[in-house]
Write a protein that binds this DNA or RNA. Sequence first.
DNA 1: ATGTCGATTTAC
DNA 2: TAAATCGACATC
Length: 203
Amino acid sequence: MSKVRRRQPSRSDAQLDESFFSRPAEIVARNLIGTILVRQLRTRQLRGRIVETEAYVGPHDLACHAAKGRTRRTEVMFGPPGRAYVYFIYGMYEMLNIVTGGEGDAQAVLVRAADPLDGWEENLSGPGRLARGFGIKLSENALDLTTSKKLFVTPDPTSRPPRIVRTPRVGVDYAKHWKDELLRFVDADSAAVSKPRPPRQST
DNA sequence: ATGTCGATTTAC
DNA sequence: TAAATCGACATC
């Protein structure tokens, strides 16, 4: 019998790859909760534990930008999974999404909030603040997060599975019945979840 | 070339 | 409750 080797918590764990992201957005959004977003800058590394996501499930989803068709902005969503979909909104905020599903599926997950790690003091609660905190700009659009050394996601081998709550997505009242779909996922035990804080019931 | 809008945040 | 502020998109 070989000895079971307990895994050492390692600072840079395996970068999540295409097999992780090439699933439906709803699944990826759920499984992204509790993972770690890593940003490698010139002089320092920024890390945050993802605690809130939203799934945008395809062109038929009226809240999804892909519902507007294939345009310059939405182009990356129609490409391979694991790419960053970054867009600029309200004249001042970038939003970080990760493309999911098979190539051509046009699904994505919006990363809405994270708990800063390693003693980093930053408010990462809300998609605008999260992208700003991590220094993510429009220029990161289409970056391949499965191979990039500048921006990627890793599992958190030290944490036990989070308690997850589902709610409707934020700010998509225009999307007909799609506004009511439970496609927002939050860590029920995190204080960093953004504004519309859900009741503490688990799913 | 011009007009509208927005997966937000912040201030009043 | 509303202003801030600008890229993408639609339209002319």
